[in-house]
């Protein structure tokens, strides 16, 4: 395993910071790392060239990159990327793309990698209820979870080569329906504050939203909350049948800690639990547990955070 190819993660044509984490992952796997930056122009590739530890940047430029379309993205990226182990971000599109690229090259795909140690890769299975350790014999496409590796630093000056691509788009975006709120998605957020059925009423989630605004956090929910209240959409659900999250801080409010919820958030760096039931299983997994009703605890939390963060 020598050459490793990072497929840069982009958002609206700009380089996503997780790309620098992917470079660290790639440098753990091979001796030489190439970044392929899919975009409609070469601007993002130019910013990728300053990431340290990169030997080459390929700007994969094509009109097909205006919106995500799995088939054309895979075709265009495949023709730019050299052979080797491919590293994508374990984002929604990154995982999709990793699958496509692997299939295109008839190699295997390994998703959601959370550890690379020598030739051994580790990925969660059963939503993190167990870990699977594996090795590759040959090329593969892998996706790496955010917050797994420290981001590679700045100061690189890799050469950028531009490769223009044209690929037929297989799906057509007819309309973008913007999010109702500016609030972050739980899958994207570094801090998440989630409510469970202990919130008693979906209207009480407004308390979590205010806190989220102060913290710059996303608001999540347990399956029990999503199943009970129509007002709480599935897109907020954290857990085995919702989103798997890996934030720096996860605050669980009125969530008992069912196994299927824990499966979706247990790898959070720090977990705070607020629950009135001292026996709630969530406390076994929390770094900081507060035995209290949310009605008592949240106003204090809000005041403290406001004082700290403005």
């Amino acid at each position: 395993m020598s050459e490793t190819i990072v497929i840069a993660e982009t958002r609206d044509g700009e380089l996503h910071p997780v790309t620098a984490e992917l470079v660290s992952a790639a440098n753990n796997l091979g001796d030489s790392t190439t970044i392929v930056v899919p975009s409609t122009n070469d601007a993002a590739a130019n910013s990728a060239s300053s990431i340290a530890g990169v030997s080459k940047v390929i700007a994969c430029v094509g009109d097909c990159f205006a919106a995500y379309d799995a088939a054309s993205w895979a075709e265009a990226i495949d023709s730019c990327a050299p052979s080797g182990v491919i590293v994508c971000a374990a984002s929604q599109n990154g995982k999709d793309l990793a699958s496509r690229l692997a299939a295109r090259r008839s190699i295997s795909v390994v998703q959601d990698v959370v550890g690379i140690d020598g030739g051994t890769l580790t990925q969660p299975i059963y939503s993190g209820k167990a870990m699977q350790n594996l090795s590759l014999n040959g090329d593969a496409a892998i996706s790496v979870r955010a917050n797994t590796f420290a981001a590679a630093g700045d100061g690189g000056s890799a050469e950028v080569s531009v490769m223009n691509q044209s690929a037929d788009v297989a799906t057509a975006v007819r309309e973008m329906i913007a999010k109702a709120s500016e609030r972050l998605d739980v899958a994207e957020a570094d801090i998440i504050i989630s409510g469970g059925r202990g919130m008693q009423d979906p209207a009480n989630f407004a308390n979590l939203e205010r806190l989220a605004d102060t913290l710059g956090a996303a608001v999540g929910a347990s399956r029990a909350a999503v199943d009970t209240w129509e007002e709480i959409p599935h897109s907020m659900q954290v857990g085995q049948t919702g989103k798997t999250v890996n934030p720096s801080l996860y605050i669980a409010v009125g969530i008992s800690g069912a196994i299927q919820h824990l499966a979706g958030m247990r790898t959070s760096k720090y977990i705070v639990a607020i629950n009135k039931d001292p026996e709630a299983p969530i406390f076994k997994h929390a770094d900081y547990g507060i035995v209290s009703t949310w009605e008592d605890a949240l106003p204090v939390l809000e005041a403290e955070l406001k004082a700290l963060l403005g």
Binding site: A70, S99, S127, Q240
Partner: peptide, 15 residues
């Protein structure tokens, strides 16, 4: 629900 990978759909489509 076992692997959580989500690879099969796009992978089969590509093939």
């Amino acid at each position: 629900a076992d692997t959580g990978a989500g690879s099969t759909g796009p992978g089969v489509a590509e093939r």
